[in-house]
Design a protein around this nucleic acid. Structure first.
Lengths: 338, 338
DNA sequence: GTGAAAGCGCTAACAG
DNA sequence: CTGTTAGCGCTTTCAC
């Protein structure tokens, strides 16, 4: 690997000029630029990013802390983040935390060693060791959010999405609806429950805790939830699961009893994973614009990075809410009981 | 951010000692180490990785070039890579190429600017600009492999896996088996076809090109393949798809004709994605140990990185073949025609 | 538009 | 076991 010095010598210019032709070509004269480029090509020179990043004290990398990359929804979010990052000249690092706080901390600390310029957290969990109020490290929270003043969020309209699909079920005459939620702790979960409540309220119904099952977003838990609902004396006529995997798990269990979806029991999901169109029957669900998290997340993050470098104060927290979209397929029908 | 100098001053030692207590604590006396750690803590000091990486001329990062992160199989592979990388002190960067050669090239070139120490390529495609024979950049090829002497591979036993599942179908009396392959170019595809041939050969049958459909590993193409097979005068009694998504797409189409899987038509897949257990019926398939690619891939890569740094020659290419596992579920039955 | 020179924070000889 | 010192490759003032 030849270095900047060798290039400057064979091009007959100073190293400063070589540096400029690579980092800000426009301030170098046409003629000089050509000379340098020729020399660089001959020598197979590529600027050393390690040196550059060190010199300017920034890595041009950011890290996404993702609880489970294997989850197809997160996979799509990551795709969107990566694209947005690249558009801004950043490289995206991936921190697969597996819901493990120690691992998450380890990744988050890359920021303290300057290895990354900022962090995008995809869980409802403040990832840094330092006090939130003393935070210097650019951080934005997306998807599942904790509530910390001062860290920007981009979230999905969980309330709206849940309300919409719940209303769909209600319009189809369902009155006894089983709800399979995610783990209790998460705000996301509370928001979706709130959406359910709002829809039921419009129909003069109160949310019945007996009709709720706390799942964990896996196929298995969807299966188990349906199992429990099916054993009731008065079974629900519809099940709304807070994600598609659980909905698919539920359908599997329902069909095992010889019941048909949606004729005997309707099922609705949440997320619109690719697979939702290929389940049997195809799943009615609400689509989250997974890829759309990237752009606003990077806007927020880059803002912070720039402000931190300029030693400016960080202002009011920001928040962007992404719209939902109802995806009607074949897993929901009018209630047979009526 | 305080730097090493400030820590050395408040601890009353030289900067070299501070550096040592962080990079090789064992060669610093207990007492000194304690002093330094105390000072570091007080000052909130964290070693600057940018400086360190620059100094030692390595990034401790590697990049995985993945064609489509949204693909659940690749997601699992990435998980395995990340873990293996972390175990060796490397950070894994992700390059989502979307099958786009320009993007792939862009990512691969991060190695030339020293931003990554090595590359793991997940496609059957040599990613670098320089001649394969002149390559200096550590590179290993996994999953789908091109054949380039000199770059180590870790691949899955595609021949064995395809042969095994094909034999299962044959044992179940199927003689007219539709095969839905992946795109023609890939060696992976050729290997699976070879496996099919070998199994058929044992039964004295020759592979019939008319019974093959060239898909692209999407749900949609599986659906389309089944559509074509179903319109034949003599329909196949079983369909073997080269991945699970296509198998699930096929089942959807088959069921649309009122046929039952597996009673009227058997379907087999490949990969064992998580979803395969939750399709209807649950899919019989061959499992690839997706996470298991990580360890051997990193062994090969780290070897190369170390050798490159020691200016040693690179020796014979290496290759590791991962074993398959047959996963019997409910989508394959004995042929009804016999 | 270009060059000279300082220095980013750290590591690794080398000497003691 | 610890300190001194050179220097990694680049960017960025400051002159000219």
């Amino acid at each position: 690997m030849s270095d900047i010095k060798k290039v400057s010598e064979t091009a007959g210019v100073s190293i400063a000029t070589v540096s400029r032709t690579f980092s800000s070509p426009d301030i170098v004269s046409q003629k000089t630029r050509a000379k340098v480029q020729k020399a660089a090509k001959e020598l197979g020179y590529h600027p050393n990013s390690l040196a550059r990043n060190f010199r300017v004290q920034r890595s041009y990398s950011i890290i996404a802390l993702v609880p489970d990359m294997t989850n197809p929804f997160f996979a799509r979010v990551i795709g969107g983040l990566e694209k947005a990052a690249n558009n801004r000249g950043y490289t995206l690092l991936l921190g697969n935390t597996g819901h493990n706080i120690e691992i998450e901390k380890k990744y988050a600390n890359l920021a303290q060693t300057s290895l990354v310029d900022g962090i995008i957290q995809l869980s409802a969990h403040y990832p840094l060791e330092c006090e939130p109020s003393l935070r210097k490290i650019p951080l934005v929270n997306i998807c599942e959010c904790f509530n910390e003043p001062n860290v920007p969020q981009v979230i999905f309209d969980n309330v709206g999405g849940a309300r919409a699909i719940m209303k769909l079920l209600l319009e189809k005459q369902h009155r006894n609806i089983g709800i399979v939620t995610g783990p209790n702790e998460s705000p996301l979960n509370e928001e979706r429950i709130k959406g359910c409540e709002e829809a039921l309220y419009e129909y003069g119904i109160k949310l019945d805790p007996d009709n709720m099952y706390t799942g964990d977003f896996t196929f298995e838990e969807g299966y188990r939830a349906a199992d429990i609902f099916l054993k009731r004396e008065t079974k629900p006529t519809a099940i709304f699961c807070f994600n598609d995997e659980m909905a698919i798990g539920s359908m599997k269990r329902i069909k095992e009893d010889g019941l048909r979806v949606p004729h005997d029991m309707s099922v609705a999901g949440f997320d619109d994973i690719h697979f939702a169109a290929y389940s049997d029957p195809p799943l009615t669900t609400v689509a989250q614009p997974a890829e759309a998290f990237g752009e606003p997340a990077l806007n927020f993050l880059c803002d912070q990075i720039d402000r931190t470098r300029d030693n400016q104060n960080y202002n009011a927290p920001e928040r962007k809410i992404l719209p939902y979209e109802l995806v009607i397929r074949d897993s929901v029908a009018t209630c047979a009981k009526n």
